[in-house]
Design a protein around this nucleic acid. Structure first.
Length: 893
RNA sequence: GGGCAUAUAACUCAAUUGGUAGAGUGCUUCCCUUACAAGGAAGAGGCUGGAGGUUCGAGUCCUUCUAUGCCCA
């Protein structure tokens, strides 16, 4: 069989995913072993509006590596995919489209029609990211794909709402909230982000004190809110104002009179020390208002224009226009003291970046204290999910829990789970699982359902179990029993609070167990400039472009290989190196296949390796497998990638193929079989990371098929994804073979060094003399043909003593074995002197360091025995080598 | 303001419980040796951000400073 000279990923990527998916290889049911242990992961659901970005690619790669390995180990493996309905962004998207295409607003077509349009939109565009995930090669079970708005998950949402309401954990109340005037909905604290505003202003406004000639000056960043002021506050300790506490201020522009109050909250250092209090439009003022029983005067509409209570001059004005007008009028009245420049931080809507308004609004809330305590109990029992990397996530997570506040769950949207609360004509509320149930409770069908929907997170916090068929407390579906709790959650730092902690609380509350054992928090993929990727900066990198350019497998290797849990800057060069690696694997396989006649993959063939090279590669293979498995068990993806890269490229390609090349090309069936088998094992190890390339090549190797499957997948469609994952066997780790092979490699490298330094053309063959006895002579002698070939020497002269002319280049192997290349006529004495001197210099430097250590009695007495003897051993080696090198140098004179 | 993290070769990053600092890319020199030039061979390149301290021994532990990033308020 002849392969192309270069690997073309695009072709393999098309074919194999289709094969895997249509044969259901990623469904846990493919596992025929009823007693197999399970392994389950639920995907963090991307937004239905979303498309694949680097963060997804990273997380999905990690999850897929974990899943594929476990599947190959024979676990009943479930990797469950799905998306969430992303209330705000989806509604926005469809609203925009409606306006663009029909010049209509959602209100124009009504709720029912609008919701229909969203479903149509979802059917048409909502699957984008799911298709992109197929391209990534993720081995998810598509037969279990979930969507937060589908019937079963909606039932779960409703039943959880009702259960919490019935126990008194959900209530409705007017409180100060974050309000997005553009999306016209309330936002939870977590959906608001801070944005620095460097060119902000601090306005100093004078309020006349009633019955005096005095003014009280307040400093504010938001003059327009003064229209809703209901007090001025000062610190009770502040002697500047102590006589004014209890006085009345005439609030300009409004004709209202408001009191001067004293409250600890006021910072004497800030501004003037006097603070205007607007309980209806500032969270801190709201609290102060409650403490002092102040009226809450709402002066704004839901679109952040001023309302009638702001006064006739201001009604209808946008908040920023109103600000200008307020300042103007203060100026006219001579009440504007000054305006300072002021750097500040503004709260903005996480989605549309509009400046968030704080106002008082009637919303639904969840009391979190009870569930929070359940989660903190886990901490006490030291049974929290295990975070990787451990720090600082565990602490951040528990700190946050301890300061948890109630959660606003209603949203003023039409797209989402409509709140299951109905009102009768008198305003009584009935919370029920359905209209029928509510009607029965109310004794009338004359009910209207609450207009609002629930926060999207109110459905995704149930994701770990709602996706497994759970619809109500007590539900124990087959999938729940089998796959919950899941094994690991892989996600990004930014949703530890929004999602991870809430999932823990909901699972504890409703299922009575943790939703997952481990949490792996990935680092952030930064742009190549080290900055965060962002649309506005235009420095983002589209994973699909990278797939096209370098192939999916190379991209996955680059991502997994960078996944230490730290953030890392994206570098195309790194992916390129893995594309080259993929090509290396391709060509190594190409070589084996070109010489595969009469041979077939046969695991038995490497069970009793005979030659040093065979014992060595089998040892390296098993050692690598052991380490890769160990690394993956502790989520050290980058270590696993490094191990595989170096095993395959250095050990297998650079040495094993080269050492066995003659035997292979001359048709030795045994050698051919062994190399095919080692290759096949390597492909299996690589499969979790590079699924397409390995499947492509595995299918081409002679002797592969379902017979190589893990026993749990006997008789299933042949795929490397069902083959056993090599776990490695300590019995095959052969230190002696590795030492002996190390000598051969050292010898060849030293000769190559001589050639290179002496500038001997590769076409010129040179003689090689080696002084060795015993096992060294045996190891080198049994590989003499390979040494001759790889060091390009005429022949290898092995004797117990060197017998070479003065004009020879010499070197010493790590065990002290002396080697010499007689180079009559070729050798440049000056160069050889330099070469030897530089090597002597290096060894002397190392020897001095180590010698100093040994001279230190404290080291010898206090350091562990094995450390000391290791240093002694190394010093011994150095001494032997130095002696020989120095003699060689002298011999040149 | 509080908390956390990071600072290692030109670049991007590694370094198990403290025990002679590694990789990939880039760079230099040589080679199209029929698996692979997306390749092969040989090299150069680091007082591990600064300053103290603990220790026989510190990239690793402690203190402090500087710079950057993230989270919370």
């Amino acid at each position: 069989m002849e392969l192309a000279k270069q690997y073309d990923p695009s072709e393999a990527e098309k074919r194999h995913y289709e094969y895997w998916e249509s044969n259901g290889l990623f469904s846990p049911e493919v596992n025929g072993d009823r007693n197999a242990p399970k392994y389950s992961i639920v995907i963090p659901p991307p937004n239905v509006t979303g498309s694949l970005h680097m963060g997804h690619a990273l997380q999905h790669t990690i999850m897929d590596v974990l899943t594929r390995r476990k599947r190959m180990l024979g676990f009943r493996t479930l990797f469950l995919p799905g998306i969430d309905h992303a209330g705000i962004s989806t509604q926005k998207m469809v609203t925009d489209q409606l306006w663009k295409e029909e010049k209509k607003t959602p209100q124009d077509i009504g709720r029912e029609e609008f919701t229909k349009r969203v479903w149509e939109w979802k059917a048409k565009y909502g699957g984008t990211i799911l298709q992109q995930m197929r391209r990534e090669g993720v081995s998810v079970d598509w037969s279990r794909e979930r969507f937060t708005m589908e019937e079963s998950l909606s039932k779960a949402v409703t039943s959880v709402f009702v259960a919490l309401y019935e126990e008194g954990s959900i209530y409705r109340g007017a409180r100060i909230v974050n309000w997005c005037p553009k999306d016209k909905t309330v936002l939870s604290d977590l959906e608001v982000e801070d944005k620095a505003k460097k060119d902000g202003k601090l306005y100093y406004l004078r309020y006349p004190v009633k019955g005096t000639e005095r003014h009280l000056t307040v400093a504010t960043t938001r003059p327009e809110t003064m229209l809703g002021d209901t007090a001025v506050a000062v610190n009770p300790e502040d002697i500047r104002f102590s006589d004014l506490v209890g006085a009345t201020v005439e609030l300009p522009l409004t004709g209202r009179e408001i009191p001067v109050i004293a409250d600890d909250y006021v910072d004497m250092e800030f501004g003037t020390g006097a603070v205007k209090i607007t309980p209806a439009h500032d969270p801190n003022d709201y609290e102060i208002g409650l403490r002092h029983d102040l009226p809450q005067l709402n002066v704004m509409n839901d679109d952040a224009t001023m309302n009638a209570d702001a006064g006739a001059d201001f009604e209808g004005l946008d908040r920023f226009k109103a600000r200008e007008l307020v300042v103007e009028k203060f100026e006219e009245l001579g009440l504007l003291e000054k305006i300072d420049d002021y750097e500040m931080v503004l709260p903005v809507c996480e989605r549309c970046k509009t400046i968030v308004e704080t106002l008082i609004s009637e919303q639904w809330w969840v009391k979190m204290a009870g569930m929070r305590d359940l989660a903190l109990d886990l901490k006490r029992k030291e049974d929290l999910p295990k975070f990787t990397p451990h720090n600082p996530h565990t602490k951040v997570y528990t700190d946050w829990l301890e300061n948890l506040r109630d959660w606003t769950i209603s949203r003023q949207l039409w797209w989402g789970h409509q709140i299951p609360a109905w009102y009768d004509g008198e305003g009584n509320v009935f919370v029920a699982r359905s209209f029928e149930e509510a009607a029965e409770m109310a004794g009338t069908e004359d009910l209207t359902q609450d207009e609002d929907v629930l926060d999207t997170w109110f459905s995704s916090w149930l994701w770990s179990f709602s996706t497994l068929g759970w619809t109500k407390p007590g539900d124990l579906t087959e999938d729940m029993e089998e796959y919950h709790p899941t094994d690991v959650l892989v996600t990004a730092r930014d949703i530890i609070f929004l999602w991870v902690s809430r999932m823990v609380m909901s699972a504890l509350k409703f299922v009575g167990e943790r939703p997952f054992d481990d949490v792996y928090i990935t680092g952030t993929v930064l742009a190549s400039d080290g900055q965060r990727m962002s649309k506005t900066k235009g420095n983002g990198i589209d994973p699909l472009d990278v797939f096209d350019k370098y192939g999916v497998d190379a991209t996955r290797m680059a991502l997994a290989g960078s996944s230490t849990g730290m953030d890392f800057a994206w570098r195309d060069e790194r992916v390129e190196s893995f594309r080259n690696f993929a090509n290396k694997i391709w060509n190594a396989t190409r070589f084996c296949l070109m010489n595969s006649e009469g041979a077939t993959v046969d695991p038995e063939s490497i069970l009793s390796p005979d030659s040093i090279a065979d014992r060595w590669i089998v040892s390296r293979l098993n050692r690598t497998a052991l380490k890769v498995n160990e690394a993956l068990e502790r989520y050290a993806f980058h270590e696993a990638v490094q191990l595989l890269y170096h095993f395959f490229w250095d050990d297998f390609c650079d040495w094993y193929i080269e050492l066995s090349k003659d035997e292979i090309t001359s048709g030795d069936a045994g050698s051919r079989t062994r190399i095919l088998t080692v290759l096949e094992q390597s492909l299996r190890l690589l499969h979790a990371f590079m699924p397409y390339l390995t499947e492509e090549l595995w299918q081409k190797l002679p002797g592969t098929g379902d017979a190589l499957h893990h026993p749990a997948y006997a008789g299933k469609p042949a795929s490397i994804s069902l083959a056993g994952f090599p776990v490695g066997d300590r019995g095959f780790v052969d230190d002696r073979a590795e030492d002996e092979m190390g000598l051969v490699i050292d010898l060849i490298s030293k000769v190559r060094n001589i050639r290179s330094e002496m500038r001997i053309s590769p076409s010129v063959r040179i003689p090689l003399h080696v002084a060795a006895d015993g096992s060294t002579a045996e190891a080198l002698g049994s590989n003499s043909a390979q040494i001759v070939k790889l060091a390009r020497v005429t022949d290898l002269v092995l004797a117990s003593e060197l017998d070479v002319p003065k004009a020879s280049a010499k070197a010493v192997l790590s065990d002290g074995t002396e080697i010499a290349v007689p180079l009559e006529g070729l050798i440049d004495f000056e160069k050889e002197r330099e070469r030897l001197s530089s090597q002597i210099g290096k060894l002397e430097e190392e020897g001095e360091k180590l010698g100093a250590q040994l001279a230190n009695r404290n080291f010898v007495e206090r350091a562990p025995e094995e450390k000391v003897s290791a240093v002694r051993e190394r010093v011994g080696e150095i001494e032997i080598q130095l002696k020989a090198l120095k003699e060689n140098l002298q011999a040149l004179d």
